[in-house]
């Protein structure tokens, strides 16, 4: 799972409707993936980014996978230069989490990740 997918995830366990994003990584192993750079795609996705979440996540867990020196404040879309776009591209689409856990900041539910695939299944009593 790449960080772009993590970015749209939230806990969906019963009763967990607020403070349920972002899921917190632990015990992660990740790899660099390679994805085609598409400025058009990034610009389309750009406004969906929660900037703080993205850079905090990247810095906490994954910074070693690239020289990701993203600005603290999200630049305006029209101010984006290619260099910054490439960094965003790398963080969103080229950091691939292979194993680890994601836990909900609200209810603590743990979603394990194996072979790059998060297991979002809930037990019967956790289904809303």
């Amino acid at each position: 799972m790449r960080l772009i997918a993590h970015h749209i995830l939230a806990c969906h366990a019963k009763g967990c409707t607020s403070n349920n994003f972002p899921l917190k990584f632990s015990d992660v192993e990740s790899q660099n993936a390679e994805a085609e750079f598409s400025p058009d795609f990034l610009k389309g996705f750009y406004p969906k980014i929660e900037w703080n979440v993205l850079i905090t996540t990247a810095k906490e867990k994954f910074i070693k996978f690239g020289e990701v020196s993203l600005p603290e404040e999200q630049p305006n879309l029209e101010d984006l230069d290619e260099e910054t776009l490439k960094k965003i591209h790398h963080v969103l689409l080229e950091i691939d989490v292979i194993t680890g856990k994601m836990s909900c900041p609200n209810c603590g539910h743990i979603y394990p990740i194996m072979s790059g695939i998060p297991n979002m299944l809930l037990a019967e009593h956790e289904i809303a």
């Binding site: 799972m1 939230a10 806990c11 969906h12 406004p47 969906k48 879309l77 790059g116 695939i117 998060p118």
Partner: peptide, 30 residues
């Protein structure tokens, strides 16, 4: 190339509700 999730859609989807509200503040967006 897509990212994959093991999920039972009948349990509900684990995606951030209102995911896209956060973007509203970017008023200068083209």
């Amino acid at each position: 190339e897509g990212d994959l999730f093991l999920q039972d859609i009948g349990q509900g989807l684990g995606f951030r509700p209102g995911t896209f509200d956060g973007a509203i503040r970017f008023v200068h967006t083209l």
